[in-house]
Structure formats: C-alpha cells, structure tokens
Design a binder for these strands. Structure first.
Length: 423
DNA sequence: TCTGGGGTCCTAGGACCC
DNA sequence: TCTGGGGTCCTAGGACCC
C-alpha cells in the first residue's frame, strides 16, 4: 500500500484563505476595507460569538469564538455583520476553480482551505512561481488574500501556510524541521489541542522537538494510535496522499441550536425538534441520502452534554420519520432539567437508490416469505408510516428540490468538480 | 456576563456469537 | 461447575478542526 505513494519528491501546497468570511465581505463592500470587522452569528442574541474577524479587529484582541459582547468591549467601533453563506460558497467555488487549473490533484479540506499536489505540474513553473501565481490570481480576480505553504507533505504544508499571514508564502523543507518546528510548543501542531498538550506535558513533553524524540510506548499509552502519528509528524513525516475524493460524501448530517434561553417546557422542546428535523430532512434530501441512524444531542444549563442514538432497521429521510425517532430518544433520555441546546443528527448515510433497493429486498424476500402480504403491508405502515409502501414501490426523488440551508461546505460543488476532473 | 454550529475520527465497554 | 479468546456490532463520549 505504502509503495503506491511516492516516498519522496512530492511537492504539496496548502492554500489557506485569510480571515475568509471577513475578506469576502470586504470584497463585496470595499468601504469595509481597513476597518475592524467581525462576522458573528445571532447578533441580537446574547449568545452570539465571533466566527471570523479582520486583521484590524485582531489588533484589538478580538478573536474567533469570543462572545460578541466581549469583543465589543475590547473594540467598541467593531463593525459586526451576520454571515452570508451563499457568498462564501460562491467565493470558495471560484477559489477552487483557480486551484484546479494548476493540478488535477486538489483536495478541499473546508470551505476556505485545500491541498494541491503539484509534483507533476513542473511545466507551469517551479513551486514558488506556482504559489505566487495562485496567490496573485486569487487576489486579483477574487479580491481575496490567502497564505500558501510549500512542502513535501500535507502536514508540513499545513504548518507552513500558518506561518505568514496574511498573503504569505512559506517553504518548509524536511531539513528545516529541527530548526523551525522543534522549538514550538506542542499545541502549535495541527492535531494537538489543549487536552493532548496537557497530557503530553505530564510526561515532560512541552515542545514539538521533545515529541519528535518521545518514547513510542509511552505515547501510545497516553494518546492511543494518535500518539504514534503525532510523533511521526513531529519528525516531518506524513505519507497521506492528496485525495480529491476524500470529502466528496457526508458521513453525517445534523442541525443543532442553542436556545435564546434555557427551556424546560416539553411542548416547546418538541417544537424545536420539529424544526431541527425539518432542516435535517431537507439536507438529507439535497444530498440524496437516507439516514440509517438518528442521534439527538441535549446540552443542559450547566453545559453537560449527552448524545443518544439509535440504529434503524430501515433508513429514513422524511421529516415525520426523523421527528418521531428524535422525540422517542428525547423522552427516554431527558432528565427534565432546563435545556440549553438541542440537536439532531442523521448518520450511517445511505445513497437513496441503494436504500430503496434494500427496502425492497427486506419487504419482499424476508418478510413476505413469513407473513401473508396484507400483514406485511400493515406492519410496514405501522412501523414507518403510510408513505413507506409508495416509497418502496417508486424510486422517485424530487429533482427540483432547492435548498438554501447554510451548510458551511459546498459538497455539491466538490462533486461536480471531481466529476469534471474525471472527464 | 462567558463559551456557536458544522463536522470527522478514535476509544472503550457491553452484548452477542463461535 | 466455571469459563478461553477472537471477532463484530452498537452505543456513548471525547478530542480536534474550521
């Protein structure tokens, strides 16, 4: 397996858009340029937080995830806008379109960053020239700044793109790792958060250099398989290929909401579950998938959060189906205390056509053999609602369904993008 | 007066089967 | 009368990232 991927000589770029949402807003409205700008959800609610902010705002100490009221205290003249996800998706699409002109190996990681393998793109120039060209085009054509890391693998490219912002281009060679990466604290590493950094420090590891020389048995005990991986990365090793298909499909689709104030009234909570189910149903349909499992999330006043899930005998997608399982899980597991957040997630996603085929198999071959047909029908109706029979009989999906829900990521685009690549 | 919403991946324990 | 070892599936929770 390993031999399939080149062991050396790869050239990987990591392109990272700088304060993406804020930059897009500035591109749309140039009067915002040079000003402290923040993008925040729930602007009128007390629970709004900063999603992104401009570099001018950062000078005041404003940071991502900071509560809005705190940001305003630090920077009273802060301009606050709500997110326009359609704009961001469009800008993202345009950005990846540009990247795809430099290599067929483009792996989007999120709405605003991606990897490109330019090993075979030498006819377009050397790696620095290619990076400069990409950065220039994104800036001139889209009015958006980005930082680019150049390295022999994904991990180093990611670390490199982070080093100069905004509008930086940074090369990180393997031989530079001891000098550049090793002095940094472990939590500066992609993949090491607060918890892992704290655990590492209990065995005397504070820096990436110390991690690079760490004892593998100790690391494995402390962080599991991830401990071994992190040590490899700390040594500048990372064989993962740039995979254009890696994010083509969702593994789960969910919707959650923090309530404006805590709610202990079951009726009210039920109506929120209705809304969440509706959103999840619409998004499942948009992706043309059904959920084989449903989970709910309940966060209480004290931020204690539980998730409860259930595998389903047959995949579902309709709002009514989702809401009934969600309510069932909710009444079974709610302790009656005030609720701060509610969420519903569909997982074990199955392609719709595939799901229908399996349902056919189930109803005709398995059940029908055992039971008189009329009983099967009523059994299925009882279990899944009266629509189930129609659904099993026809393979219809509404192709005109248009959705404007605000997922942070444009998988539709990625799919068409990848299909185009194959041609 | 605190801490959103969208995800992915990994781990661990229990049930169950052979 | 007490009891191995492996494997898979399901569920819950945690860590991390953008």
């Amino acid at each position: 397996m390993k031999e399939m991927y080149p062991k050396k000589g790869r050239v990987i770029l990591h392109v990272d858009m700088n304060s993406f949402y804020a930059s897009v807003e500035m591109a749309y409205d140039s009067s915002l340029k040079g000003k402290p700008l923040a993008i925040a959800g729930n602007v009128e609610e007390r629970r709004g937080i900063i999603v992104t902010c401009s570099y001018e705002a950062r000078k005041f100490g404003v940071k991502t995830t900071m509560p809005l009221w705190e940001a305003k205290k630090l920077c009273p003249q802060l301009i606050v806008r709500t997110p326009n996800f359609n704009r961001y998706r469009l800008a993202s699409k345009a950005m990846f379109e540009i990247l795809s002109q430099y290599s067929s190996l483009v792996e989007p990681v999120s709405i605003d960053e991606g990897y490109i393998d330019i090993t075979d793109s030498y006819e377009l120039g050397n790696p620095i020239q290619i990076a400069e060209s990409i950065q220039k085009r994104i800036l001139e054509e889209l009015d958006l700044p980005c930082s680019i890391g150049i390295a022999p693998n994904k991990f180093l490219a990611k670390m490199a793109s982070d080093m100069k912002k905004p509008l930086g281009i940074t090369i990180l060679r393997k031989r530079d790792v001891p000098q550049i990466l090793w002095p940094l604290a472990t939590n500066e590493m992609h993949g090491v958060g607060k918890k892992s950094a704290a655990k590492l420090s209990t065995i005397g590891i504070q820096t990436i250099g110390e991690l690079a020389k760490g004892n593998e048995i100790q690391l494995k005990k402390l962080l599991g398989i991830n401990g071994i991986r992190l040590k490899e990365r700390a040594n500048g090793l990372d064989e993962r290929p740039v995979d254009p298909e890696s994010v083509a499909e969702f593994k789960s689709i969910g919707n959650s909401t923090t309530l404006p104030k805590d709610v202990a009234n079951q009726k009210e909570l039920f109506s929120i579950l209705e809304t969440l189910s509706q959103t999840v149903s619409i998004r499942l349909k948009r992706e043309n998938v059904l959920a084989g499992a449903i989970a709910i999330t309940i966060r209480y006043k004290n931020r204690k959060t539980i998730t409860r899930s259930k595998k389903l005998a047959n995949p579902i997608g309709l709002k009514e189906e989702i809401v009934s399982y969600a309510k069932e899980l909710f009444v079974k597991n709610w302790n009656g205390n005030p609720v701060r957040l509610l969420g519903i997630t569909g997982s074990d996603l199955l392609d719709h056509e595939e799901a229908v085929r399996q349902l056919d198999l189930f109803s005709y071959e398995s059940e029908a053999r055992k039971e008189p047909l009329f009983k099967v029908v009523s059994l299925l109706r009882e279990k899944y609602g009266k629509n189930i029979i129609d659904k099993a009989g026809s393979h219809q999906v509404d192709p005109n369904h248009q959705i404007g829900t605000e997922t942070s990521f444009n998988k539709d685009f990625l799919r068409s993008f990848n299909e185009k690549k194959k041609e």
